[in-house]
Design a protein around this nucleic acid. Structure first.
Lengths: 330, 330
DNA sequence: TTGAAAGCGCTAACAT
DNA sequence: ATGTTAGCGCTTTCAA
């Protein structure tokens, strides 16, 4: 393995000068510069990043946490984040929790073990362990489209409460008031779904609508879950005439499952998605859904992080509006 | 920052013993063990991974390269790879090329700069620079569902040639012999598409079918591209009656675009996808396509890597068959 | 404008 | 079973 010392020797110089050259610092004469370049080429030298990381106590690596990268919403979000960070010279580490708080712990630990300079969380399991880490490493923990009480200043937040109410209101105005509600999380949890669930509960109450406990479904996130949901719905003696799914993936599977069981969408049951994922417009019944401003979320999050890390002093807030997209499923 | 030396001091021991304890090595008495544990807790110590990386010349980090993570095929593939590697104690770094060979170069450089222990390439730009790196770091460069002459032993390869011919044959038997062909790469390139293109060319010739140069399209990969393709097709004076797209994403956009222009799928034009992405069965016209055995590809690739890295001695080959999936679009 | 040398936090001979 | 110490490859202080 070629080291900076060998380059220095080959070029007849000290390591300091070579290091200067490598880091584009001033005070390297043209003459020496050429010698160094020749030595580097001759010995095929590449600096050891790990040694640099140890010495400077900086890795130029950022960790990003998502629950599942196969969820197209996260794929899109991560896509933007990765490219932005890469543009600023960072490499990105990614981990998927699959709702496992142990993985989250492991992920958080990368910060403490100096494996990454900072972390971004697009999914959350245990608020307490995150909060603890965030307090310990101020500015190095960013919440992306998530929030935790006490960490508001490090969170890129969207108004999901209003978005859900707007979606529900659309249904309401169309006379679809027998509404089933589906969440990816748990009703008693404090995940990002809880704000949305609260919005649903409040909406129903404000409009004197009946909340049927048979029409409440938790822990559904995939298209397969959507199909299972269709089965459950079809077996109900009293059926809703609208389903707010909180997920385009669930909606997709649900619609297919419903049609398999001869329940027409939206005629018999209207189906509302969430995210406006890239494929939602190509669905069998194009999805009525709520669009998340993915690119703006990614930009705001990365900008906040870079600001914290003193690599940029822009503060980007963009337009973080959620928007109801009307297509055919509702 | 707490270091191992401070723990040693606090526990009244040498650093060796602490290091032994941390790495689960033998020869640490129960008594000392407890002292160490107390010290670690008291000082809230977490070992510095970077220091360890430097000392051991091992990072426990693997780099994975894909062209676009928003392509559901890559998302699925990466999903499996990440979870498997994580299970074996590796953290994973990901980079997206977006077809840019400069990014690929940057990625390859992570190996040389000791930022990762090995790399997996699920997309390829410049064969030469990859080959060079692979020869320099034997066993540390794995090709995932890709291949480069001279690197066969480090590649997980599938028989895309036969798969394309099988797909084409299905079309042929249905009398769909005016076939347009679409690739994500370039016709003159040597990317992973070239084998498929060769299969197409050979098939057409073997069956004395006419290859219409107006029906050949290169550099189409997204659903948006598919819509553009629909426009181009619709403007053709002589239209094909089948389109082999090489991509479910393109197929999705294409079908929507065709229907917008009153061309019925599959009646007027049959559309063939590739990958069998998760959403393809939920498409407006469920996609006839070629299924890639994503999970098996991921497993075989990771197993090969772990074998090379001496962390496992299983050699997994699984069933790497591609399969024609008949639905409705063709 | 340049170089010598200390030291980042850890592991691994080697000695005991 | 445990401790001393050299050294991984780099940056940075300090002196020249």
């Amino acid at each position: 393995m070629t080291t900076i010392a060998e380059i220095a020797k080959e070029a007849g110089l000290g390591t300091t000068t070579v290091s200067r050259y490598l880091n584009n610092k001033p005070y390297v004469s043209k003459e020496k510069r050429e010698k160094i370049e020749a030595a580097i080429k001759k010995l095929d030298y590449t600096p050891n990043r790990v040694a640099k990381q140890l010495r400077t106590n900086k890795t130029n690596q950022i960790g990003v946490l998502v629950s599942r990268i196969t969820n197209p919403f996260f794929a899109e979000l991560f896509d933007e984040i990765e490219r932005l960070l890469h543009k600023y010279g960072y490499n990105v580490m990614i981990m998927q929790t699959y709702d496992d708080s142990e993985v989250e712990r492991h992920f958080l630990n990368m910060l403490q073990s100096h494996e990454v300079d900072a972390i971004m969380l697009a999914s959350i399991e245990r608020q307490s362990q995150i909060l603890k880490m965030a307090k310990k490493f101020p500015g190095k923990v960013i919440l992306v489209n998530e929030s935790i009480p006490g960490l508001d200043d490090q969170a890129i937040k969207l108004d999901h409460y209003s978005a859900v109410q707007n979606g529900l209101n659309y249904l309401y105005k169309k006379g679809r008031i027998q509404i089933a509600y589906v969440t990816g999380g748990m009703f008693n949890g404090k995940d990002h779904g809880s704000v949305r669930t609260q919005a649903f509960l409040d909406f129903m109450q404000e409009h004197n609508l009946n909340i049927n406990s048979d029409w409440l479904f938790e822990n559904y996130h995939s298209a397969t879950d959507g199909d299972r949901l269709a089965k459950n719905i079809s077996e109900l003696s009293i059926k809703p005439n609208a389903i707010f799914t909180n997920s385009d993936e669930v909606a997709l599977g649900l619609i297919a499952g419903l049609e398999d069981r001869n329940i027409a969408v939206p005629e018999d049951i209207a189906v509302f998605g969430y995210d406006d994922q890239p494929f939602s417009k190509y669905a069998k019944v194009p999805l009525t859904t709520i669009r998340q401003p993915v690119k703006a979320i990614a930009e705001a999050s990365v900008k906040k992080l870079l600001y914290n890390l003193h690599v940029s002093n822009e503060i980007e807030d963009g337009n973080l509006q959620l928007k109801v997209i009307i297509r055919q499923s509702a």
